[in-house]
Design a protein around this nucleic acid. Structure first.
Lengths: 239, 239
DNA sequence: ACCAAGAGTTGAACACGTTCAAGAATGGAG
DNA sequence: CTCCATTCTTGAACGTGTTCAACTCTTGGT
């Protein structure tokens, strides 16, 4: 797995000095220890005490770097996302049609996330709470969310699809929502290799593609405007 | 609020003897104490110790009746559902158009759930874990889920809307999914009185209504078949 | 009346995530 | 080098949900 991109949970002003090299190393040590324990012993056994122990630091020290266990898990989550972005970029470099590009991006996520499926449920549980920093709708996740939405903008922009301007502007966010739906399905998917989730993606994408191409016919255009209006009304302050 | 219907977390075979009257009373006392504390002091302050204390029993005794704090919260959830079904029935008795019926059912839920919004997130957290019996997709929730889906069947059947047979068969499930989406939005909605969720419902329902009425025009019919096919493929074993 | 057997009840104890006051190491200014 | 402010580190302690062995009470059969 690619190197993790670590998200500072309390981002400082850019003017402040950087963290020392040693501190950065300790931080990474803790994350590595956490990853190791999650993989080998599962979510429940990977207690903050065990992680700190594995990393060779005190509990308090672990909390100096990560203000909660959830923030520590978020480093994990960020790692998955970083690898997804990487693989998705590879797909986007070759695929040209909208359907192929979207399928590629969604399946890349399923591929990358597969090793974590076992404890994804536990992770998901924490992410579901609105006040949790792990929630995909939270302020803490904004950077990740924006990046993911931008990925879908690339899916659209690099493709052959023709869309009304207003729809094109809102579609990346809607596709991200679709991805969240896929994740929801994936979490509940117990088939091996998450076969059914892949099936869902492969069947759903052509439907989406077809629906989008229908947006240009007269009777449907008004509906599209309504949908765009709805999204715009609902978006600003809440997820 | 109407009387709570209590769900036994470990349902026994019907042949077993009933719980004693005194036990049933103690059980109810604990729930009442929990409700009181949740309402007055919020979720975090309503610790198991505080609840047991308020009910005049020991901690261990509270756990004798509810195998976890989650199960205690489920009593709450069941109460909401029961009251929703009641209010929805009232709406369905008078509203005739599809849009009015759907809006009525969805807003009824928002009305009923409003007092619980503060700690709904905590409940939601538990419900999100796939292995949890509280998950709306779980086998344990099947009765509740089937009832809710049937409610949406009534929304359709009693209305003026005309739909293709295949779509009509799958639509109740899709509307239930829409309701789950509304709940997801509602959980994250911090506007007062969940104003924005009501706005979402009032704006989204006409769009859904319009979309459904478009399903009869020729170019769209193929898409509808695809969607129905997708739903049927995906439904059987996973949520 | 007596006695098992089960139902109901208890609170100390456990492991967990998290906090905090206190101390140790670091690095730049003089 | 000395000093001091800042960064980094520590582990005991807190409150939480949950468990459990031991206890008391209730019930029904003899």
């Amino acid at each position: 797995m690619a190197r993790l991109s670590i998200v500072t949970d309390n981002p400082r002003p850019a003017s402040r000095p950087e963290r020392s090299a040693k501190a950065e190393q300790t931080r990474q040590t803790i994350i590595d220890a956490a990853m190791r324990l999650f993989r080998t012993h599962g979510y429940d056994k990977a207690t903050m005490r065990a992680i700190a122990d594995e990393a060779g630091v005190s509990i308090g020290n672990a909390y100096y770097y990560f203000s909660s266990k959830e923030h520590l898990i978020q480093a994990y989550y960020d790692g998955i996302n970083a690898e997804h972005a990487e693989r998705a970029a590879a797909t986007l470099a070759t695929a040209t049609t909208f359907a192929d590009r979207l399928t590629g991006v969604l399946l890349a996520w399923v591929d990358v996330a597969e090793p974590y499926h076992e404890f994804a449920g536990k992770f998901f549980k924490n992410a579901a709470e609105p006040s949790s920093p792990l929630s995909p709708f939270s302020a803490d996740s904004e950077a990740t969310r924006v990046a993911a939405i931008d990925l879908h903008r690339q899916v659209i922009d690099g493709s052959d699809i023709k869309l009304a301007k207003a729809l094109r502007a809102e579609l990346p966010e809607l596709l991200w929502l679709l991805q969240m739906g896929v994740v929801l399905f994936w979490v509940h998917d117990t088939s091996d290799g998450q076969r059914r989730t892949r099936q869902l993606v492969e069947q759903a994408v052509p439907v989406v593609d077809r629906a989008l191409r229908l947006t240009r016919i007269p009777g449907v255009r008004g509906l599209v405007d309504d949908v765009v209006g709805l999204v715009r009304t609902i978006k600003p302050t809440a997820g």
